[in-house]
Nucleic acid binder design. Structure first.
Length: 440
RNA sequence: GUGGCUAUAGCUCAGUUGGUUAGAGCACCGGUUUGUGGUACCGGGGGUCGCGGGUUCGAAUCCCGUUAGCCACCCCA
């Protein structure tokens, strides 16, 4: 065995593995186009600054970054959104709105691997830019659901946890902690993972004596599952008139969003769950994550609204919402459910060649057939008929063309249907036409 | 970055209290088969037993180290 191994977290795709990938990407592209999204891509390698600008300096430890020969600090992209932001910012005023774009590309993160997480993975990114209202979220979430449905997954398999950073800020503001909201949301983010005592201590260091009271209010908010419960939660905190207006507006957004998702027929996939807050740095409104119902896997996808990124990239004010969907967890789940088809490249015809003299005719016809667009193969070596038929079956070809001395004397080849074993003689010149008919 | 478990053929795994040339099934190649294919029979190739060191007359087996993988934590854009 070779001493050269692929790098940790980087995969090799043998043909049967690659077939799985192609299947995933096919569905992604098909469904995205169905929704009117256009495909784009950006550079895999970017300046380190681009990613730091969006996510802060700490991110460097999780990047594949290095100095190039020109002394530039660069990094393989850990995500596509900064690149998208720059691309859209550069042409923002010339782009028809809404901008509905998607991309399928490799991303790189220097992290310890575990189930569902590698160092190089492929992500579908879909974004809608230029629309501030919930109609963009409705469209995007509908796309997300149809993609999973496209793989045969349904309501019993996955669901979307839907949350809202705006409503959290309003809630904390009402309690007088607007300035501390980022830190408090960090506690919310770790609510299920962090031991209660540690979380309470942490909270105390942020809000001081009000810790007990705030803790209870967080707990109550996390139990909210409906708009009615949401309104009720706000009745227990002091809401001044200015806040009241913002709150009313936000509740109208929520209503529009949920009604729209119902209208799309995907209400059954949505669960209001304010424990989702996600990457605190740049999300500005609704955020969401997709999980399998069994919750045995990492999030299948995640995203949300990021209304200030385009400006940050030097563009005009431009609202945006998007999601990323990785190939690793998705493939795990599809395999687990038996929903990963074994796609193999199949041939239209396999040429069975009698001997060296017949080979001349076979090579000639193979070339003609291939130029006509058919997938055709034959044995590179002179082999017994039985051997060649075995190879023909294994290749998945639908037909075998038999080049025997008897046939060629008559100017025909025998066309054998490999599934029903029927045979007919066809003049060589007519092979492309006949094959086209046979394949339907 | 931290911790636990694992490592024998391309894959799934056997391998006795340490014992002589490390096995099986599947897969692959060849044959039975220059005129008919998923079955059958026969044969073949393929291993530094993850790597390095130690104990021993002798190590896949015991000990130490190391690397990689898996799982969880941290993180998760």
């Amino acid at each position: 065995m070779s001493n050269f191994k692929s790098l940790p977290g980087f995969r090799e795709f043998y043909p049967e593995d690659f077939a799985e990938r192609r299947f995933l990407f096919q569905v992604w592209r098909q469904v995205a186009r169905r929704f009117g999204f256009q495909e784009y891509d950006g550079p895999v390698l970017e300046s380190l600054e681009l990613f730091k600008a969006k996510s802060g300096d700490e991110i460097e430890s999780q990047l594949f970054c290095f100095e190039d020969k020109g002394g530039r600090e660069i990094s393989l992209r850990p995500e596509l959104t900064p690149t998208l932001g720059r691309m859209v910012a550069a042409r923002a005023n010339a782009l028809k709105r809404p901008v509905k774009w998607f991309s399928v590309g490799d991303n790189f993160r220097y992290e310890r691997m575990q189930k569902g997480r590698l160092r190089c993975f492929t992500q579908l990114n879909a974004d809608i830019l230029g629309e501030a209202g919930p109609s963009a979220e409705i469209e995007l979430l509908a796309l997300l659901v149809q993609i999973f449905q496209g793989f045969g997954l349904g309501e019993d398999d996955f669901f979307i946890r839907l949350s809202d950073r705006n409503i959290w800020v309003l809630y904390l503001e009402a309690q007088g902690f607007a300035a501390q909201s980022a830190k408090i949301l960090e506690i919310v983010d770790k609510w299920e993972r962090m031991p209660e005592e540690a979380a309470k201590e942490n909270l105390e260091s942020i809000v001081g004596d009000s810790a007990v009271q705030v803790w209870e209010s967080l707990r109550a908010f996390l139990e909210v599952r409906t708009i009615a419960e949401l309104s009720k939660a706000f009745q227990k905190v002091p809401v001044n008139s200015k806040l009241h207006e913002a709150l009313e507006a936000r509740i109208r957004d929520w209503t529009e969003l949920l009604d729209g998702l119902d209208a799309m027929g995907i209400g059954g996939y949505i669960e209001m769950d304010l424990s989702i807050v996600r990457g605190l740095a740049y999300y500005t409104g609704f955020v969401f994550e997709v999980f399998d119902r069994a919750k045995k896997n990492r999030a299948l996808a995640g995203g949300g609204r990021y209304n200030s990124l385009i400006q940050k990239m030097g563009g005009p004010e431009m609202p945006a919402v998007g999601f990323g969907l990785g190939d690793v967890v998705l493939a795990d789940i599809l395999r687990g459910r038996g929903l990963m088809p074994r796609l193999v490249d199949t041939l239209d015809a396999y040429l069975v060649v009698g001997g060296e003299e017949e080979r001349v005719a076979a090579l000639f016809d193979a070339n003609v057939l291939r130029q006509s667009g058919f997938a055709v193969d034959y044995s590179l070596r002179s082999q017994a008929f039985g051997k060649q038929f075995k190879a023909a079956s294994a290749s998945g070809a639908r037909f075998a063309f038999i080049y025997g001395s008897d046939e060629l004397e008559k100017g025909v080849v025998k066309v054998r249907n490999l599934s029903d074993r029927s045979e007919e003689e066809v003049p060589r010149a007519q092979l492309p036409l006949v094959l086209r008919d046979l394949l339907g």
